[in-house]
Design a protein around this nucleic acid. Sequence first.
DNA 1: CGCACTATGCATCATATGTTGATTTTATGC
DNA 2: GCATAAAATCAACATATGATGCATAGTGCG
Lengths: 293, 293
Amino acid sequence: MTQSFTRLLAARLDSLPARMQQAARWIAANPHEVALLSMREQARMAGVQPATMTRLAQALGYDGFEALRAEHAAALRHAPSGLARQADGRLPLCAESAEGQALEMLTQAQGQVAELCAGDMLASLGKAAELMIRARRVYILGRRSSHAVAWHLYYALSLVTERASLLDGIGGTGLDALWHAGAEDVLFVCGVAPYTRAVVEATLQAQARDIPIIALTDSRLSPLIAARGVGLIVPTHSASFLHAMTPAFLIADILAALVARADDPGTLARLEGLDRQLAALNTYISQPLEASK
Amino acid sequence: MTQSFTRLLAARLDSLPARMQQAARWIAANPHEVALLSMREQARMAGVQPATMTRLAQALGYDGFEALRAEHAAALRHAPSGLARQADGRLPLCAESAEGQALEMLTQAQGQVAELCAGDMLASLGKAAELMIRARRVYILGRRSSHAVAWHLYYALSLVTERASLLDGIGGTGLDALWHAGAEDVLFVCGVAPYTRAVVEATLQAQARDIPIIALTDSRLSPLIAARGVGLIVPTHSASFLHAMTPAFLIADILAALVARADDPGTLARLEGLDRQLAALNTYISQPLEASK
DNA sequence: CGCACTATGCATCATATGTTGATTTTATGC
DNA sequence: GCATAAAATCAACATATGATGCATAGTGCG
């Protein structure tokens, strides 16, 4: 996006003083904001003195901060339309070359993500989030290619609540934990064709015991979808040898966010505090580490 | 793009005085510039007095020109996506409602996926795949929010090759396996800010031992990027409390596909056979199971 | 240990910004 | 044609902005 700045930075970051690095890192992480916020606001967000911003710009060879902003503004002017295809439209878009296949998969993923907005996905997401919010416990299940999706949802939820359980086989718990579940809980299950046998069976048993089920799957006809609960249907076609799990992953991510926003706001605030703390700690840590290489 | 302003304008343009119309027309024609130029410059370009700009904003119900600029800045921030927005432009696109936040995250993800095609991503993907193909072993590392990405890559690779090792802490192996790695191997590491300390340290040690490193991370300045190897930069901004990992997930998925296609074609064929077999088995299974509910 | 040097924080400066009140011009109705 | 109101220009204001000089704290070197 901001070619010149990022390149300059990558080359000379190490030789910059600490606070300038801190400022530079913030800018690198929020390039959009450079042209949209005042320098002082950016300084505040980066946790740096206003003067440091000016000096950073000058240290990189700009006349001043205004010059830096001008560059980023120019990037912002030209960027917005930047739908990637046109830039690389010459590529064959086929499996002939590695780049071709990569581009095809990227393009396909883009289309699949766009599809997600259609239909009743938004409403279903809302309903699913509602179920999870009201549930006593949230059991999460996903095997094979769906494991990453399940794990991500579990990880995200576990940051804001202790009501989540991952039904993986590690450590001996496995599916057994489901026996404690009841109608006040909810089972989130992710699975795509070919459905893993154990997952299907567990889901059907849960269904028989009136546990509401949120099914993230690839078809309305999926065996995972239950009458009591919500079905979240995502596309899985892929130019790869595996089914595309990116849409499912994204939906799980959104689900976690929706649950988090409705959960105890204090929890979320604490989390943000932790995040900031970790971020601050990191910039502190990465210095000596980078230097010691 | 600037929903509210354009809408207001369409409704009340005719009832505005001449110079205000002149100003409004210029803004309507150059909406990008509203947030990027100072009000006085815009006034000059529109051939209008500075005061007219302020009064136009107020006439439309804004507090002042700054409020108008804020709206356009927000639009610019979310700009790269835009496709999904038009489909559901009625929704507030803010964290007010659950649906609003879901839509915002979907929109954002769409833009981020589109961004991935830009720059040198395709070339870097090719290089990374090449490294992994030639490597004796592929070590895969990712903790916390990056774990799902690492796991997915490991799972996909393990379907087509036995050369992959996941460096997770489960079962006691942990990072120790890295000690067997050398310059003929490759380390795939995924991590976003705030970088997990153990991951950074392991990466730096690997770097010191000349192990090529494929770093899937969020910035060119990430401590995970090594001189020897490839950096894959993905956007991670999110409207959620967690960083967006969907782009990283997609890149890992593509990487696995690229490695698979170059690997022994026989393996792939076998895999497809297995897949079909499982699918056939499943449809057989799911029938009686669904009937038995 | 002391020196020189740099980096950082603080206070200040000149300036440009968005806004508002006053004044002049233009349009409109009687 | 005149009186009134609306609109546009002008001028001035308070303020926030980016830049800079200076003093202090920190660091590396002899």
